[in-house]
Amino acid sequence: MMHEVIWHGRGGQGVVLAAQILAESAYIQGFRGVTSAPTFGPERRGAPLTASTRISDEPIRTVSQIERADIAVVLDPTVMGIVDIFGRLKEGGVVIINTPHTADELSINGCFTVATVDASGIARQQRLMVAGAPVVNTPMLGAFARATGLVALNCFEKGLKKKMPADRAVSNFAAVAAAYDRTVITPKEERD
């Protein structure tokens, strides 16, 4: 079975890195097929962009872009008014959003499971900041673990170590674990 993930955010927020860490961690978890890719083309700081991760039990043969994902991860809620996130998400899929609001407050239409977490707030609390901005990409991995159950937290801990220096991996993992705890999941049946 293949799980397709699209990451939404802005240039400079670590969207591509998050997609890579997820692939790395899923491989550690035991998935034999993992790929991660940026959107091909020029990237600009601040511009809305996406990255993608595919996770599968079997080796993955396709390198084409994902048409409709099983899971959408939104690092920056401000892109939701600009990009059609739900148009690229399968019906019945999972959307994981960095927001201090609840699923009901966001008034999302459609048959989706909504997971919310205040990743920006967690990063500020833990002083996980880069250039004055909260680091939101790694906390969203914790929300991903909680919302999907595909990859265990300890695999993310190992995955982080492969993508960054040990001290940063420790501080980032603390945020991952905190986000895991604070993620609120609203299944599609319970909405509206």
Partner: peptide
């Protein structure tokens, strides 16, 4: 104006 895309979308 806008030939390079709506660059206001980049703003946070």
């Amino acid at each position: 104006a806008g030939e390079g895309g709506r660059t206001g979308d980049w703003r946070d």
